[in-house]
Protein backbone atom coordinates (compact mmCIF):
# COMPACT_ATOMS: atom_id res chain seq x y z
CA UNK A 1 0.00 0.00 0.00
CA UNK A 2 1.34 3.36 -1.00
CA UNK A 3 2.18 5.71 1.76
CA UNK A 4 0.88 9.20 1.46
CA UNK A 5 3.45 11.82 2.20
CA UNK A 6 2.95 14.52 4.76
CA UNK A 7 4.83 17.78 4.51
CA UNK A 8 7.85 17.93 6.83
CA UNK A 9 7.15 19.17 10.32
CA UNK A 10 3.44 18.42 10.24
CA UNK A 11 3.62 14.91 11.65
CA UNK A 12 3.55 16.11 15.23
CA UNK A 13 0.26 17.91 14.65
CA UNK A 14 -1.62 14.81 13.66
CA UNK A 15 -2.72 13.68 17.12
CA UNK A 16 -3.72 17.25 17.94
CA UNK A 17 -5.89 17.47 14.85
CA UNK A 18 -7.44 14.15 15.79
CA UNK A 19 -8.29 15.44 19.23
CA UNK A 20 -9.84 18.59 17.85
CA UNK A 21 -11.83 16.68 15.26
CA UNK A 22 -13.22 14.40 17.91
CA UNK A 23 -14.29 17.28 20.10
CA UNK A 24 -15.71 19.52 17.38
CA UNK A 25 -19.51 19.70 17.50
CA UNK A 26 -19.77 20.89 13.92
CA UNK A 27 -17.78 20.76 10.69
CA UNK A 28 -14.31 22.16 11.10
CA UNK A 29 -12.94 24.30 8.32
CA UNK A 30 -9.31 24.49 7.31
CA UNK A 31 -9.25 28.13 8.35
CA UNK A 32 -10.59 27.40 11.81
CA UNK A 33 -8.17 24.59 12.38
CA UNK A 34 -5.32 26.73 11.10
CA UNK A 35 -6.20 29.42 13.58
CA UNK A 36 -6.34 26.95 16.46
CA UNK A 37 -3.02 25.34 15.58
CA UNK A 38 -1.48 28.59 14.46
CA UNK A 39 -0.48 27.23 11.10
CA UNK A 40 -1.40 28.38 7.59
CA UNK A 41 -4.77 27.20 6.28
CA UNK A 42 -3.21 25.09 3.53
CA UNK A 43 -1.26 23.09 6.08
CA UNK A 44 -4.32 22.61 8.22
CA UNK A 45 -6.23 21.35 5.20
CA UNK A 46 -3.37 19.05 4.35
CA UNK A 47 -3.45 17.57 7.84
CA UNK A 48 -7.17 16.96 7.61
CA UNK A 49 -6.87 15.33 4.22
CA UNK A 50 -4.04 13.19 5.49
CA UNK A 51 -6.08 11.95 8.43
CA UNK A 52 -8.88 11.15 6.04
CA UNK A 53 -6.58 9.11 3.91
CA UNK A 54 -5.05 7.44 6.93
CA UNK A 55 -8.38 6.31 8.38
CA UNK A 56 -9.42 4.93 5.03
CA UNK A 57 -6.12 3.13 4.57
CA UNK A 58 -6.23 1.69 8.07
CA UNK A 59 -9.80 0.52 7.71
CA UNK A 60 -10.99 2.38 10.76
CA UNK A 61 -14.64 2.42 11.73
CA UNK A 62 -14.85 6.14 11.30
CA UNK A 63 -13.98 8.57 8.57
CA UNK A 64 -13.42 12.26 7.99
CA UNK A 65 -16.13 13.64 5.75
CA UNK A 66 -16.23 16.88 3.90
CA UNK A 67 -19.41 18.65 4.88
CA UNK A 68 -20.72 22.18 4.74
CA UNK A 69 -17.37 23.70 3.94
CA UNK A 70 -15.50 21.82 6.64
CA UNK A 71 -14.50 18.43 7.94
CA UNK A 72 -16.32 16.22 10.37
CA UNK A 73 -15.43 12.98 12.09
CA UNK A 74 -18.23 10.48 11.52
CA UNK A 75 -18.84 6.78 11.71
CA UNK A 76 -18.58 4.86 8.49
CA UNK A 77 -21.80 4.25 6.65
CA UNK A 78 -21.29 0.51 6.57
CA UNK A 79 -21.80 0.26 10.31
CA UNK A 80 -24.93 2.36 10.47
CA UNK A 81 -27.04 -0.59 11.47
CA UNK A 82 -25.05 -1.09 14.65
CA UNK A 83 -24.50 2.49 15.51
CA UNK A 84 -28.14 3.35 15.17
CA UNK A 85 -28.94 0.87 17.92
CA UNK A 86 -27.48 3.36 20.33
CA UNK A 87 -30.74 5.24 20.32
CA UNK A 88 -34.36 4.28 20.00
CA UNK A 89 -35.55 7.15 17.93
CA UNK A 90 -34.15 9.18 15.09
CA UNK A 91 -35.28 12.25 13.33
CA UNK A 92 -37.86 11.19 10.77
CA UNK A 93 -36.90 11.41 7.14
CA UNK A 94 -38.23 14.40 5.25
CA UNK A 95 -41.54 14.27 3.44
CA UNK A 96 -41.78 14.42 -0.31
CA UNK A 97 -43.21 17.90 -0.02
CA UNK A 98 -40.22 18.97 2.04
CA UNK A 99 -37.80 17.42 -0.43
CA UNK A 100 -39.44 19.11 -3.39
CA UNK A 101 -39.39 22.44 -1.60
CA UNK A 102 -35.75 21.97 -0.69
CA UNK A 103 -34.91 21.01 -4.25
CA UNK A 104 -36.41 24.22 -5.54
CA UNK A 105 -34.61 26.26 -2.93
CA UNK A 106 -31.29 24.51 -3.35
CA UNK A 107 -31.10 25.08 -7.08
CA UNK A 108 -32.94 28.36 -7.42
CA UNK A 109 -32.12 30.29 -4.29
CA UNK A 110 -32.97 32.81 -3.15
CA UNK A 111 -36.70 32.17 -3.56
CA UNK A 112 -39.95 33.63 -2.41
CA UNK A 113 -42.54 31.35 -0.93
CA UNK A 114 -44.70 32.40 -3.86
CA UNK A 115 -42.06 31.15 -6.30
CA UNK A 116 -42.04 27.76 -4.65
CA UNK A 117 -45.81 27.56 -4.58
CA UNK A 118 -45.96 28.44 -8.23
CA UNK A 119 -43.67 25.59 -9.19
CA UNK A 120 -45.23 23.00 -6.92
CA UNK A 121 -48.78 24.09 -7.56
CA UNK A 122 -49.70 23.80 -3.88
CA UNK A 123 -49.48 25.94 -0.77
CA UNK A 124 -46.14 25.59 0.92
CA UNK A 125 -46.44 27.60 4.10
CA UNK A 126 -46.45 24.76 6.60
CA UNK A 127 -43.73 22.86 4.76
CA UNK A 128 -41.53 25.94 4.82
CA UNK A 129 -42.19 26.41 8.48
CA UNK A 130 -41.09 22.88 9.24
CA UNK A 131 -37.93 23.35 7.21
CA UNK A 132 -37.22 26.58 9.04
CA UNK A 133 -37.68 24.85 12.36
CA UNK A 134 -35.32 22.09 11.40
CA UNK A 135 -32.73 24.63 10.43
CA UNK A 136 -32.49 23.49 6.83
CA UNK A 137 -33.82 26.73 5.44
CA UNK A 138 -33.42 30.35 6.51
CA UNK A 139 -34.46 33.85 5.59
CA UNK A 140 -31.81 35.46 3.45
CA UNK A 141 -33.40 38.78 2.73
CA UNK A 142 -36.44 40.47 1.29
CA UNK A 143 -37.52 41.16 -2.24
CA UNK A 144 -38.35 44.59 -3.59
CA UNK A 145 -41.94 45.39 -4.30
CA UNK A 146 -45.19 45.46 -2.37
CA UNK A 147 -45.17 43.64 0.90
CA UNK A 148 -41.39 43.16 0.73
CA UNK A 149 -41.82 39.40 0.82
CA UNK A 150 -39.22 37.19 2.44
CA UNK A 151 -36.54 35.44 0.42
CA UNK A 152 -35.41 31.99 1.54
CA UNK A 153 -32.26 29.99 1.05
CA UNK A 154 -30.65 26.81 2.32
CA UNK A 155 -28.42 26.73 5.38
CA UNK A 156 -25.13 25.11 6.27
CA UNK A 157 -27.08 22.56 8.24
CA UNK A 158 -28.78 21.70 4.95
CA UNK A 159 -25.40 20.80 3.49
CA UNK A 160 -24.52 18.71 6.52
CA UNK A 161 -27.86 16.99 6.53
CA UNK A 162 -27.45 15.80 2.97
CA UNK A 163 -23.78 15.04 3.28
CA UNK A 164 -22.65 17.78 0.89
CA UNK A 165 -19.40 19.68 1.06
CA UNK A 166 -21.01 22.68 -0.60
CA UNK A 167 -23.76 23.58 -3.04
CA UNK A 168 -21.66 22.55 -5.99
CA UNK A 169 -21.98 18.99 -4.77
CA UNK A 170 -25.70 18.97 -5.41
CA UNK A 171 -26.78 16.23 -7.82
CA UNK A 172 -26.58 17.31 -11.43
CA UNK A 173 -29.96 18.43 -12.72
CA UNK A 174 -31.60 16.46 -15.55
CA UNK A 175 -30.97 17.13 -19.23
CA UNK A 176 -33.96 19.45 -19.52
CA UNK A 177 -32.38 21.85 -17.02
CA UNK A 178 -30.55 24.04 -19.51
CA UNK A 179 -33.60 24.43 -21.69
CA UNK A 180 -35.64 25.21 -18.60
CA UNK A 181 -33.27 27.94 -17.42
CA UNK A 182 -33.09 29.44 -20.88
CA UNK A 183 -36.84 29.60 -21.09
CA UNK A 184 -37.05 31.25 -17.68
CA UNK A 185 -34.55 33.90 -18.69
CA UNK A 186 -36.45 34.62 -21.86
CA UNK A 187 -39.87 35.05 -20.32
CA UNK A 188 -39.71 36.64 -16.89
CA UNK A 189 -42.14 39.30 -18.05
CA UNK A 190 -44.88 36.79 -18.63
CA UNK A 191 -44.72 35.76 -14.98
CA UNK A 192 -45.49 39.23 -13.77
CA UNK A 193 -48.85 39.24 -15.41
CA UNK A 194 -50.49 37.82 -12.28
Amino acid sequence: MLDKELSPGLQEYLPIVEAILLAAPEPLSGERLGAILEVPTEQAAELLEYLRWQYDAQGRGFTVRRLAGGYRLQTRGEYAAYVSRLAQMRNPLLTTAALETLAILAYMQPCLRADIEKIRGVKTESTLRTLLERGLVEEVGRAEGPGRPILYGTTRRFLEYFGLADLRDLPAPPAEWQAYLAQKEAAPAAEQDD
Binding site: T75, A103, P174
Partner: peptide, 20 residues
Protein backbone atom coordinates in the same frame (compact mmCIF):
# COMPACT_ATOMS: atom_id res chain seq x y z
CA UNK B 1 -37.68 18.64 -12.93
CA UNK B 2 -37.98 19.53 -9.28
CA UNK B 3 -39.88 16.40 -8.44
CA UNK B 4 -36.93 14.44 -9.79
CA UNK B 5 -34.43 16.62 -7.95
CA UNK B 6 -36.44 16.23 -4.77
CA UNK B 7 -36.28 12.47 -5.10
CA UNK B 8 -32.53 12.65 -5.62
CA UNK B 9 -32.19 14.73 -2.49
CA UNK B 10 -34.19 12.05 -0.73
CA UNK B 11 -31.62 9.47 -1.73
CA UNK B 12 -28.83 11.69 -0.51
CA UNK B 13 -30.67 12.08 2.76
CA UNK B 14 -30.87 8.34 3.22
CA UNK B 15 -27.22 7.69 2.57
CA UNK B 16 -26.13 10.66 4.65
CA UNK B 17 -28.23 9.30 7.48
CA UNK B 18 -25.86 6.37 7.73
CA UNK B 19 -23.07 8.55 9.02
CA UNK B 20 -23.16 9.56 12.62
Amino acid sequence: IFKTLGAQLGELEQSAANYF
